[in-house]
């Protein structure tokens, strides 16, 4: 009977694990819903911004704005890597970290200096482990990133880009395509890639207060901040999606495991009973 008892213990362990993963799955599902809502309600702002920039920006004059400056030679770029604070989300953070390392080695192969800014405990600890220097780290951005947090991340980088200390800024974050698909995505936020002209039909004769130049001067930084904010939001949604998927498959696997264990347990139990009967029968026969 000892073997059966041992299996029974394992069954209980797996049952407990399944309870935990199932709860985490449900928590992630509800957090995902809210993160998606936030992503949706942030959309109008970025849409209008892009529209207005498309309308005002004359591609030939682009070089006049510091944030659109295409550097002649790229010497130093900053990479802003967005990861999550918590694990148990499958390969979510590993994918992001790998994307950052790929980008860094590509840039370095071209003789470009890189500096790494990391958001999220998971990214921070994996680069610490790799012994890669981290220029700045932030672990205080949670499930509900705010626009202020995005500003505080990107503003120093923007200033240094304007001062020509940096020749580019990349953001790496997870895209949220669906809960099943959250691939890492690398975007260059500086210099700004002007929104394509098709996106914003021009030919509206605006009264401009004070002038197109002055308006763009004000709006372009908002655009950069907003792309970082959107990246944070999307990453938060993707994290929950990835966690839900990971926890769902963990729950399913626990179910399969329970089934096999139960079967093994029953077989062991039956074997023990059969043996006991055989012993009794044998004992009785010996008495006759």
């Amino acid at each position: 009977m000892s073997r059966a008892r041992e299996i029974k213990g394992r069954i209980r362990g797996v049952q407990n694990t399944r309870k935990i993963t199932r709860t985490m799955e449900m928590v992630a599902t509800s957090k995902l819903k809210r993160a998606q809502d936030r992503l949706g309600s942030a959309r109008p702002y970025s849409q209008r911004l892009r529209e207005v920039i498309g309308r005002l920006l004359n591609p030939e004059l682009a070089a006049r704005y510091a944030l659109l400056r295409q550097p002649e030679a790229t010497r130093r770029v900053a990479i802003l890597l967005v990861t999550s604070n918590r694990g148990l989300a499958g390969a979510f953070n590993a994918n992001l970290t790998r994307a950052a390392r790929t980008l860094m080695s590509e840039l370095r192969a071209n003789g470009v200096e890189t500096e790494l800014h990391v958001v999220g405990r998971k990214g921070i600890s994996s680069f610490r482990f790799l012994g890669e220097p981290i220029a700045s780290d932030r672990a205080d951005i949670g499930d509900r990133p705010t626009a202020e947090e995005a500003d505080s991340l990107v503003d120093p980088l923007m200033e240094r880009f304007i001062a020509a200390e940096l020749d580019g800024v990349y953001v790496i974050h997870a895209r949220f395509i669906s809960a099943l698909s959250t691939p890492p995505n690398t975007t260059r936020v500086l210099p700004i890639e002007p929104p394509s002209q098709e996106e914003a039909p021009r030919a509206i004769d605006y009264i401009l207060e004070p002038s197109a130049d002055a308006i763009l001067e004000k709006i372009l930084p908002l655009y950069v901040r907003n792309s970082v904010y959107t990246a944070l939001l999307e990453n938060a949604a993707a994290e929950q999606g990835a966690r839900r998927t990971a926890m769902k498959s963990a729950t399913d696997n626990a179910g399969d495991m329970l089934q096999t264990l139960t079967r093994t347990y029953n077989r062991a139990r039956q074997a023990a009973i059969t043996q006991e009967i055989a012993e009794i029968v044998g004992g009785a026969a010996a008495l006759e």
Binding site: V52, Y206, L208, I215
Partner: peptide
């Protein structure tokens, strides 16, 4: 007011 000309202002 209604019918304002297209405008953009900081």
């Amino acid at each position: 007011l209604l019918g304002h000309a297209p405008m953009m202002a900081v």
